[in-house]
Amino acid sequence: MGSFPATRHSVVAGIASPDIHARRVAFDALVSAYWRPVYKYVRIKWRRDRDDAADLTQEFFARAFEKGSLGRFEPARARFRTFLRLCLDGFVANEIKARGRLKRGGDVSFVPLDFAAAEHELSTHPAAHGAGAASHADHDEDDLFRQEWVRGLFSDAVGALRASCEAAGKTKQFAVFQRYDLDDNADVRPTYAQLASELAIPVTQVTNYLAFARRELRRLLLERLRSLCATDEEFRLEARELLGADPTSRPA
């Protein structure tokens, strides 16, 4: 993870760039953000086994890079996320039809993809246990894809938050955030007073540290979201769904 471009240029614009280097950088970011949802989607919706799903995931991105199919996205017609899922559906359907006739795998490789970890995550997914059941309805499939996309976005932003806190010597800020918002081992959230005692800081600092970490998380999320959206309109819509606010508004 952590392969998002440092600039705020849209990844979606980058994948259509005539500059091969810019296109490559954009594709790495795109793969980082989407490979997990793509893999899990292929596993669950298309009911492919692990190896097959891993191959199809890699090949989907490799083929898209070679052919530039994702660069043909039209923002007026759909969100990029929806477009990518529809492209994936078309790709997998064609692959299944052509199985045995086409050479597997592409020559292009992107960021390393940890399919074993994705498989482990999938083992707890309820839909993964219904492999023999009928295919999910369209909206469920879209939900699944979106949910995994959101999960990836948050995972990446949390990773970036951890790295920036460590770099800035703000480990206690991250520790408060981790214990209060991230730690899902505890059945019940600790109180601010418990956290203060645990980390030997005043209760007021718990409030401040948590506010800081959340603000940073929000900023990192929006930064990543912006890079994954094709237009300002799409960015606003996604941000509103994800965070409940119009990211372009400013204090009155």
């Binding site: 959101v150 990446d156 949390v158």
Partner: peptide, 13 residues
């Protein structure tokens, strides 16, 4: 960063 559990994701959102 490993993927987040559903519970952690809910909290984070």
């Amino acid at each position: 960063m490993s993927a987040l559990s559903d519970a952690a994701l809910r909290r984070l959102r």
